[in-house]
């Protein structure tokens, strides 16, 4: 069986699994929207759109939308399902089948990409009442969805790596906590040049910053160069994580 067919079959199974566990999907949507509402409620008046240059004429919610999307894309539920498969023995059942090892990890990541894109579209739709507009138009909206999906795969692949190496639900769950420092050591409240010097250095070293700025550039129409850098950083991290997943499952004992 080809890697592509195997990935498709296992991806469909992972999507069914996600659809049948709405309790796992709910926080993915609810928590990021909660942060959007709270952050805009707390800081919206500090940054009025008519006198805040970096908002490019939009409200503060538009500036916050990338952080919301990144948070929504960083729950990595697939890794917890993978640990369940490992602990319950189904993972061995899959490994005992003549299906490419790569398909076993890519199937779940394919499902994460679909889920990530769906959730991103929903988050953007739900943010419309906050006067958010994707200034780069329909094309920009689609690129925003794709960039969110790539990040979703990258972070899920990182958590899958933790799951494959530790085979432990607790360790995998702890791995997901890594995103919080990564998300908050970014220019998520103000642009990088308005951060204090130590925070600016931390944000500059943090790759999530570039993904966030790329998303923000799409929402605020803040330059295609930033969009390109955002895609490049997300793609490199995604490729590295997928490669490590493939290597780990090939050597899995």
């Amino acid at each position: 069986m080809s890697t592509l067919v195997g990935t498709g079959a296992l991806g469909q199974r992972a999507l069914r699994e996600a659809w049948r566990t709405p309790e796992a999907l709910f926080p993915t949507l609810f928590i990021p929207l909660f942060f959007l509402v709270v952050n805009v409620g707390q800081a919206g008046k500090i940054f009025p759109s008519d006198s805040t240059d970096f908002l490019q004429g939009q409200g503060y919610a538009a500036f916050q939308l990338p952080a919301t999307l990144l948070l929504a894309a960083s729950f990595g539920g697939s890794a917890m399902f993978l640990v369940e498969d490992i602990e319950g023995g189904y993972f061995d059942k899959l490994r005992a089948a003549p299906v490419s090892r790569t398909s076993i990890v890519l199937g779940r990541l394919y499902a994460e990409a679909v889920k990530g894109a769906g959730i991103a579209a929903l988050v953007v739709l739900l943010s419309l009442p906050f006067d958010v507009r994707v200034a780069t138009g329909v094309g920009g909206f689609l690129l925003l969805i794709v960039l969110t999906a790539i990040w979703s795969v990258a972070f899920s692949a990182f958590l899958q790596l933790v799951a494959l190496r530790t085979r432990s639900a607790a360790a995998t769950q702890s791995g997901s906590m890594l995103f919080f420092p990564l998300l908050f050591l970014t220019p998520n409240f103000v642009p990088r040049d308005l951060l204090t010097r130590p925070m600016e250095i931390a944000a500059t070293l943090n790759p999530v910053t570039y993904v966030m700025e790329g998303m923000r550039a799409l929402v605020l129409d803040d330059g295609w160069a930033k969009v390109g850098i955002g895609f490049a950083v997300a793609a490199v991290i995604c490729a590295a994580m997928v490669a490590l997943n493939v290597r780990t499952i090939r050597n899995y004992d």
């Binding site: 069986m1 067919v5 195997g6 079959a9 296992l10 199974r13 069914r16 699994e17 049948r20 566990t21 498969d85 319950g88 023995g89 189904y90 993972f91 061995d92 059942k93 899959l94 005992a96 089948a97 003549p98 299906v99």
Partner: peptide, 30 residues
């Protein structure tokens, strides 16, 4: 793997699928 069937200690099943879905997927993987 094509020559052998394997049923390990704890029934290795994905409990969120139906019996039919599980067997169809298994057949697709083979």
């Amino acid at each position: 793997r094509r020559s052998m069937g394997v049923a390990l200690q704890e029934a290795g099943l994905d409990v969120r699928q139906t019996g039919r879905e599980l067997l169809v997927l298994q057949a697709r993987l083979f």
